[in-house]
Amino acid sequence: MSRGQEQRRLLPAYLATGTSPGVGLSGTLDSLAALRASGMPLARYHTAVHQRVIELLTDGSLSVVELAGYLGLPVSVTLVLAEQLVTDGQLKATVPIPDALRASNDGRPSKEVLEEVLSGLHALLAA
């Protein structure tokens, strides 16, 4: 799928999510939400890609978009994967800070917020 756009894709994205109907999915997760593994073992119905997600998130956290990059899957599909695992308990999600996103130009954090972050990081480095 990632190789050559002129080629017909061989592996459809639903292989990653499985065919179980997504009735339980809330749709609250944002593509910038930070994810990390909770340490709960996977169930039998989880796919190899779920396993891979857990592997990637075991030692740290990644946002959904980053995860999509690592998996080579569309962000929307990765979002479904993340929602499935958060619903099942294998992942913990930290929602992005709404204030930071709301402030100004369409969803991006404002300059002030970024400055705050920068100064926070400076403080961390100094500590």
Binding site: P21, G22, E83
Partner: peptide, 13 residues
């Protein structure tokens, strides 16, 4: 459509 960025999970599914 799957590669559309803003698809909510229901729609994606």
């Amino acid at each position: 459509l799957q590669h559309e960025f803003s698809a909510p999970p229901r729609l994606t599914q």
